[in-house]
């Protein structure tokens, strides 16, 4: 039993765990956070750092920026022996699609009420991304949209922007 569970565990681990650093992406990430840290530090410097007895608004962000720069450098040094290739694949396009759909959802939410964007979002994720059969997708979409309406608007009295009002 335990053995079996452990096997499942390992299998799952392999599936879900990202390559733990060591790759070119880690180096890129370190460089990006290094740049952000430098930029933040420079901005913080401009906010008036003050003195230790009268710390200004910039002091703390400056300290944090320094920590960020140092840890970025440490990560960059560690990632220096990069051997793996870039793990971004064609599959990353789906992630982009997913992320853009969320932004679009948020954009439309207050403009046209939550019902239609919700239905569209669910259809997109179910059919195009999830490759679910059409009927299943439609049922889930209608059911979930109605459930969200009943839960948030009717039961909890949350004022969601909506088209259908009672």
């Amino acid at each position: 039993m335990d053995q079996e569970q452990e096997e499942v565990q390992e299998e799952v681990q392999e599936q879900v765990t990202a390559p733990a650093g060591r790759s070119r992406t880690t180096a890129v990430a370190a460089v990006v956070s290094l740049a952000v840290g430098l930029l933040a530090g420079w901005t913080a410097w401009g906010m008036r750092v003050g003195t230790l007895s009268e710390p200004g608004p910039g002091l703390w962000p400056l300290v944090v920026s320094v920590v960020m720069v140092l840890s970025s450098v440490a990560l960059l040094v560690a990632a220096g022996h990069a051997t793996e290739s870039d793990p971004f694949t064609r599959g990353s396009a789906v992630v982009l699609l997913g992320a853009v759909s969320l932004l679009a959802y948020a954009w439309a939410f207050e403009r046209i009420g939550f019902e239609i964007p919700t239905a569209l979002l669910l259809m997109l994720w179910l059919t195009v991304i999830g490759k679910e059969p059409l009927l299943t997708s439609l049922l889930v979409t209608v059911g979930a949209t109605a459930a969200a309406y009943l839960l948030f608007v009717v039961a909890l009295g949350v004022s969601l922007p909506r088209l259908i009002a009672f």
Binding site: Y105, L121, L122, I129, K131, V140, A144, S159
Partner: peptide, 22 residues
């Protein structure tokens, strides 16, 4: 494939309800 969209939906609406902010 079904759980993910539903989770996303609850999260998005839930986040909106914190301070009614798009």
């Amino acid at each position: 494939a079904i759980l993910a969209p539903l989770t996303v939906l609850i999260t998005m609406i839930g986040v909106y309800t914190v301070r009614m902010s798009v």
